[in-house]
Structure formats: C-alpha cells, structure tokens
Nucleic acid binder design. Sequence first.
DNA 1: TGATCGCATCTACCATACAAGATTGGAAAG
DNA 2: CTTTCCAATCTTGTATGGTAGATGCGATCA
Lengths: 225, 225
Amino acid sequence: MAEIVSGAAEETMALRVVGALRDDIVTMALKPGDVISESDIAGRYGVSRQPVREAFIRLAQQGLLLIRPKRATVVKKISPEGVRQSRFIRESIEVEIIRRLAAQAGAESRSEMDALITEQEAASDADDSRRFHTLDELFHRTLARLASVEYAWQLIDDHKMQLDRVRYLTLGSSSSQRAISEHKLIVAAVAQGDVPGAEAAMRAHLARAEVLLNQTIADHPDYFE
Amino acid sequence: MAEIVSGAAEETMALRVVGALRDDIVTMALKPGDVISESDIAGRYGVSRQPVREAFIRLAQQGLLLIRPKRATVVKKISPEGVRQSRFIRESIEVEIIRRLAAQAGAESRSEMDALITEQEAASDADDSRRFHTLDELFHRTLARLASVEYAWQLIDDHKMQLDRVRYLTLGSSSSQRAISEHKLIVAAVAQGDVPGAEAAMRAHLARAEVLLNQTIADHPDYFE
DNA sequence: TGATCGCATCTACCATACAAGATTGGAAAG
DNA sequence: CTTTCCAATCTTGTATGGTAGATGCGATCA
C-alpha cells in the first residue's frame, strides 16, 4: 500500500483518499471481504480520521465499501447478480446508442471509429493489455459521444466499477483478438445503416462477458457473495 | 422547513438529515439556486455540523447539491440536458424491459398489471394526484420486477430524483387520464406479444414528458441552468 | 466439562475546536 | 465620485476527544 501520490494535485485530502482506495479496490490490492477501519487507513496515509470517513461514505455510495455501523467497514464482495444487472443497464443503453448511430450514420464518425480500432490492433499486437483496456474504454465512450449522450455515459460510469473489478481478475485471458473482430463487425454494420445487424453485433459483444464472469467466479469463489 | 421526524426510526442522524433535505429539495421547499450552509442546516435541525456535512456529501453525489469548497453549498439547478439524458437512460432500460416482458408474456403478470391500472383509475377519479404518482411509480417498478431486473431499477433510482423535481413542478397539469390510457396500450401490447407495438407504446409514453419539460422551463426559467 | 456473564477493546458516530481559502463591506486614497 | 485595498466574517476542510454500540475473550459458576 503505497503513499498517497501528492503530485496528483487533488483538491482535498478526502478526494485523494477516495482515489487511492478506489484504485486499491479495483486492482484487488484490497480484496473483497477485507476489513478496514477509519483509524487504520488514517494512520496508513498520514491523515486524520475525518477525511478517511468521508472517503468511506463516498465509496460506500458507489458500492465498493459496506459500512456496518459500530461494527466495521469491509470491502464489498462482488455480487454476481449485481454484475449481471449492471451489464443489463449497460447493454440497454449501448444498444440504444448503436441504434441511434446506425440511423444517423456519419462519415466522419466512421473514420474516427476506424482510427480507434487501428490503435487497438497495435496495442493487441504489442501485448499491451493495459493500453488495450484503455482504448476499449475509449471506444465505447466515443460511441456515446457520437450519439450525443456522453452525459448519460458519465451517469453509468459509477456502476461500471463493479464490472472493472471482474475485468481485472480476467486480465490474463487474452481475448483481445475476439474483441477487436467484434468491434469491426459493429462499425461495419453502423456504416451500412444495418440497424438490426448493429444491434445484434453489440449484444453478442457484450454477452461474451457472461462466460468470463462464470469462469471468474469459479476461479475466485471467495471474492463473490 | 419542519423538524426532523424522529419517529422515522432512521439509523443515524446523518441519514435523517439526508432524508429531510432530499424531501425538501424534491418538493421544492428548497429551490434550485438556494444557498445553504452546514452551520445553517445544523442549527435548523438541532445537530452538529458533522452529520450535516456527511449528508451534503451524499446529496452532492446524487446530483442534488453542489459543494463549492470554501465558498458555499447550493441546491443544484436543474439541467435540461441532464434531464433529457436521464430520461434517455430510463427509456433505454424500460424499452429493454418491455421487450423482455413481451417475449415471455406471463398470464399472472397480466393480472397484476391490470390490478395496478384499476387502482390508478380510482386515484385519478378521486383527483388524488399524490396517490396517482405513487401508483405510477409502482407500475414502472413492477414492470422491472416482472422482468427480473429489479436491482437494475434501484441503480437508476438515484438519477430519477432529477426527473422527480420536474414532475413536482408539473403536478397541477392533469395529464393523468392520458397516462392511464397509455399504460393500457402498453399492457395490451405486452399481453398480445406484440413486441414492436409495446416498444412504440412505451416510447410514446415516455416521450410525452419532453413537452412537459419545455413547458416547465418556460414557466420557471430561474430553476434551470 | 460446559455454559453464561462481564469487562477490555474494538468499531463507527457525533460534537467541538481550529485552520485556511473566499467573499464582502467599508474605509482610504486618487 | 471612482477605485483600490484591507480586514471582519462568511464558507468548507481537517484534527481530535468523547460516546454508545458490538465483539471477543476470559473468568466464574453450575
């Protein structure tokens, strides 16, 4: 557990603690079920309990911590049902986004999407999974922006952290190639104005995660409820 | 601004303050743009600044308050774009819900929906707009439950408060009759397994809110950004 | 041996004091 | 009269002490 990066130039101590803890949780440095306390974290980061407490409240609202009053605060275990429903929300919104994109079909949109896919291929060839993850994130966000619903994307960003924890556990399984080919299918359908095709491609792309989820649960049963 | 209802048996002071403030904001007792402070609310409710501060953090994360560090805390003005995008999210999810319901079509589901609509008609005849609002809420939540995505409904419940503020401003305009007939159309389409029909009916039902929004902005321009 | 009670020791919750940035008003200078 | 500047007084941020509830372990008693 490293020191807080003071160079981050965050506004307040509380926000610094929020960022540090969130990173530790998403990257599994703090594992689901781990028990932490205000005093513990406060001492570890060299701040008082007050900003830590506020950080706990924020992270609890985001579903990463579970505050049990007068008892303890624990890193929330991953709820398989919650993951599925978060995925349902994301799928619902992305399908709607794709439908809009396919309907309005911009030429400059096509080139922008193509450029991102090219970058993803480069990252995949270099086995840079971290960069690939970032680009995949950007790909979906770009779809939202092109459909003029970028704000909506921000709204569901919180729930996405649950999915990120699962994704981190599945980092080694190189399914990048399949993801790229699926992205190509989506872009191609959008370019042709093929609404049902684009919708089906997007559903298939997102549905593949279900397999990974079940496998992850089998690999790390104590991280899930 | 009434006293905190101590009979509510809430867990902590902070949660009591959260509930009280949220009600005041949604019911426009605290208007968009109003400036409040921790000391102010603390004195008003007879508690210290600490639980009030935690309440502010929670409400800020839910988008109802805007904390400007070292300056002040204000009731966030309603963002028309935010309302539209929240509605986009809700529409995306509800369309997906209706699609699933229409596909699996349960007989007991039909009777449950019919019962709710009957109650709504009674509330509308009695001009009980508050009860009608509650029943309308229940109707949509029931749809989610019948589609086995009730947890997803909880996830989007936070964003719904933005819409509730707008809805509160449009309470007088008796559009209950139209809402009921629209609900009937949805249920009928679901019962017949008419997927496109159910989808179209749901979109129309939700789209009508856009008209109300524009009218509301015209009526209360200083409540919006 | 086994069960029950009590106390030491955790926890999060709340109150209070202090710190530091931001605002606002008026006074002073032009 | 206008402009500038400073200080009183707001605001939120942080630190710390005390409180009540929950837990766990050990002593005591049946």
